[in-house]
């Protein structure tokens, strides 16, 4: 366990039970997942039962109990993106990367996810790699976008 790293995160908060979600978010951002040992420490420090942490970690889409890849691909499946072929973009990515939605490639480079709406509906279909948005990312553009991260 990387205790100093966890301490840095915990030191940003006052250690109250309602700090749970922000603390977990910081851990997720920093580690790319929620390691079990770290959660045990969080439970003690925030005085929150481990059951509650497990509940929260499995309820919210942002959290993962297994490590995510270096790059997070989020394909928008909002209404407009759905109508404009967002589903096919997911299939194309899944086929090219060899992973199902929600999983990470063996080389730990990419995690493929879908999201309810990214809010760039006018440019559907939209996808996001890490913090960068790609508009009108139809199936034929997928290889070009992936190339930028390989």
């Amino acid at each position: 366990m990387d205790l100093p790293r966890l301490e840095t995160i915990l030191s940003r908060y006052e250690g109250e039970s309602w700090d749970l979600i922000p603390v977990l978010q910081d851990i997720q951002d920093s580690y790319s997942y929620l390691p079990k040992d770290e959660l045990q420490v969080v439970s003690e420090r925030l005085n929150v039962p481990l059951t509650q942490i497990y509940s929260v970690a499995t309820f919210f889409k942002m959290f993962s109990l297994i490590p995510k890849g270096k790059h997070q691909i989020k394909v928008c499946l909002g209404t407009t993106c759905h109508l404009k072929g967002g589903g096919r973009v997911v299939e194309s990515l899944s086929h090219r990367l060899g992973v199902e939605v929600g999983y990470t490639t063996k080389d730990m480079q990419f995690t493929l996810e879908t999201v309810g709406c990214l809010g760039s509906c006018a440019q559907a279909p939209v996808m996001m790699v890490d913090d960068k948005y790609y508009g009108r990312s139809t199936v034929d553009k997928v290889p070009k976008i992936l190339k930028l991260y390989k």
Binding site: W18, I21, L24, Q25, V56
Partner: peptide
């Protein structure tokens, strides 16, 4: 307060529960 990815948190009581550290 950053949301953690749950559409239902747009509902005000659910939003409040998640701000309190719950599901």
């Amino acid at each position: 307060s950053r949301g953690a990815g749950a559409f239902v948190c747009g509902e005000e009581t659910a939003l409040i529960h998640s701000m309190e550290g719950n599901i």
